[in-house]
Write a protein that binds this DNA or RNA. Structure first.
Lengths: 107, 107
DNA sequence: TTCGTTAATTCAATAAATCCGAACAATTGA
DNA sequence: TCAATTGTTCGGATTTATTGAATTAACGAA
């Protein structure tokens, strides 16, 4: 599985970010990571941030898409993979986007 | 084809809106409608707002998704279908979302 | 070192969504 | 009524998503 590849911010497109955030499961993950950052800020394992009933293969694909889109960053820590939101970077490139999406009352 | 159905704003979900805006062709349409509103404000025909090289079957599907998501409103005017952005409504329900997306330099 | 456990990824098969040419429908003007 | 214009709908090929099963990775204990 090797170490994770994260796109440089100059290669992160609005298209990919919106696509990544257009899925409710992925948005739930991003919300959890955002909440974690606001509190602990230590990052969360895949399982910790994903919706509880999500099959793990599906979960893993969602994380792969979030990483590829440049939305999250992953590092291995023991048997877990810890994810953090690339919050400041996204905010710098797409000002207001994350707040607008995370702030919305998701229906 | 009948008259177009537009969802009531209470039934418009963030999920659907983000999904609609996650596609570059649809975002191009929305940008064109936003620009029109800023200038003429009269609405644009499908062809006028869509990317020029888009096959019309595809274009039509994109508009259908934008309508279903609650992002645009359509009315028939002669042989044309005129679309307008449901700008204020979306802004009221998802504050900051449209500005963040339309304001971004699309890559 | 070798198991066993936990955590996540990859594979492969199926299911669902998208794209677009061709046919169709709606409207207008001649 | 006919032709032209503008979109929509249909159908099939292509692409993408989902998920169970197999696999990889890291760790701790014996």
């Amino acid at each position: 599985m090797q170490n994770f590849i994260h796109p440089d911010m100059k290669d992160v497109t609005l298209d990919a970010v919106l696509y990544a955030l257009a899925d409710p499961a992925r948005r739930a993950i991003v919300r959890a990571l955002a909440a974690d950052r606001a509190c602990e800020g230590t990052g969360l394992s895949c399982n910790a941030a994903a919706p509880p009933d999500l099959p793990k293969a599906t979960m893993s694909q969602h994380y792969a898409k979030l990483r590829a889109a440049g939305v999250v960053r992953a590092t291995r820590k023991g048997v877990s993979v810890i994810h953090t939101l690339r919050c400041d970077e996204i905010n710098a490139k797409f000002p207001g986007l994350l707040p607008a999406i995370l702030g919305a009352v998701d229906v």
